[in-house]
Computed example of a mutant assay.
Amino acid sequence: MTSPASPSQTRALIIERLVGDSGEAAQVIGVGRGMAERSLPLLQKALSAELGAPVTVDLQAVEVGRVPDARMRAGETFAMTIVPSPTSADAMTLVMDAPAIAVMVQALFGGDPDQPVAPIERDLSQIETDVATTVFQEVAMALNGSGRRSLELRQPVPRAMSGNEAKRRVLRDGAAVRIIYGISTPTDTGTVTVMIPQRILLATRGATADHGG
């Protein structure tokens, strides 16, 4: 592995090694929760505008973990994308499970929100992958922030991958904060999992962690 090209990258690697899974978990979770809570109304509004149908977005959990754990709870069928920034090729990893994709597709195409959606137990279609990409775009924009505290995520986000491509994609290991959103109708619920490396989170938000990030 080559050495980092700049002092800021070196500092980021040092931060990652220092905090790890056993580092300042309360600080990391506090910063992540602050971001997630601020993003929630933005995300709800954005998805409602995209769909024109009642879909509820809620914050289910904010935890510490490792980046490769992003797919851990997604099941066999899911969509995934990895969003770069100027300082990192993997500043954010997003995973959307099959129930969440089904909820979004039904809402987008005018399905009855009071009727259960059919589970997706096959490879995703192009339309389903496009819907997942749209959701990832809105999540990334809601979490990105602005000014000096921005994650500086590159837009638009890369198109979602699925199937064997998503399952076999190697994710660089490292300590991360895991943010889990629920996407639901009255009958069904799915999840979108967001993994942000701690080296990214603390480099951009660490200075204000004591104030909720």
Rank of each mutant, 00 (worst) to 15 (best):
Thr2Pro: 14
Thr2Cys: 11
Pro7Met: 15
Ser8Pro: 02
Gln9Glu: 15
Arg11Tyr: 13
Leu13Ile: 09
Ile14Gly: 05
Glu16Cys: 10
Glu16Gln: 15
Gly20Trp: 00
Gly23Thr: 08
Glu24Asn: 14
Val28Pro: 02
Gly32Asp: 06
Gly34Leu: 09
Gly34Asp: 07
Met35Lys: 08
Ala36Leu: 07
Ala36Arg: 10
Pro41Met: 15
Ser48Ile: 03
Pro54Glu: 12
Pro54Cys: 12
Ala61Tyr: 09
Gly65Asn: 11
Ala74Phe: 00
Gly75His: 01
Glu76Arg: 13
Thr81Val: 06
Val83Arg: 02
Pro84Tyr: 12
Ser85Met: 06
Thr87Met: 13
Thr87Asp: 14
Ser88Lys: 11
Ala89His: 14
Asp90Gln: 14
Met92Thr: 03
Thr93Phe: 10
Thr93Arg: 12
Val95Asn: 03
Val95Arg: 04
Met96Arg: 01
Pro99Cys: 08
Ala100Val: 07
Ala100Met: 10
Ala102Asp: 02
Met104Phe: 11
Met104Thr: 05
Met104Pro: 01
Ala107Cys: 04
Leu108Ala: 06
Phe109Ser: 00
Gly111Tyr: 00
Pro113Lys: 14
Val117Thr: 10
Pro119Val: 04
Ile120Met: 07
Ile120Arg: 03
Glu121Trp: 03
Asp123Glu: 14
Ser125Gln: 05
Ser125Glu: 08
Val131Asn: 00
Ala132Ser: 10
Thr133Pro: 00
Thr134Val: 03
Val139Pro: 01
Leu143Ala: 09
Ser150Arg: 08
Ser150Glu: 06
Leu151Ile: 07
Glu152Met: 10
Glu152Pro: 01
Leu153Trp: 07
Arg154Met: 12
Pro158Met: 13
Ala160Ile: 07
Gly163Ala: 13
Ala166Tyr: 12
Arg168Cys: 02
Arg172Tyr: 12
Arg172Asp: 08
Gly174Val: 09
Ala175Cys: 04
Ala176Glu: 11
Ala176Lys: 06
Ile180Val: 15
Tyr181Asn: 06
Thr185Glu: 02
Pro186Leu: 15
Asp188His: 12
Thr191Gln: 12
Val192Met: 13
Thr193Phe: 05
Val194Ala: 06
Val194His: 04
Gln198Arg: 10
Arg199Val: 05
Ile200Met: 11
Ile200Gly: 05
Leu202Val: 10
Thr204Pro: 00
Ala209Gly: 01
Asp210Thr: 04
His211Cys: 02
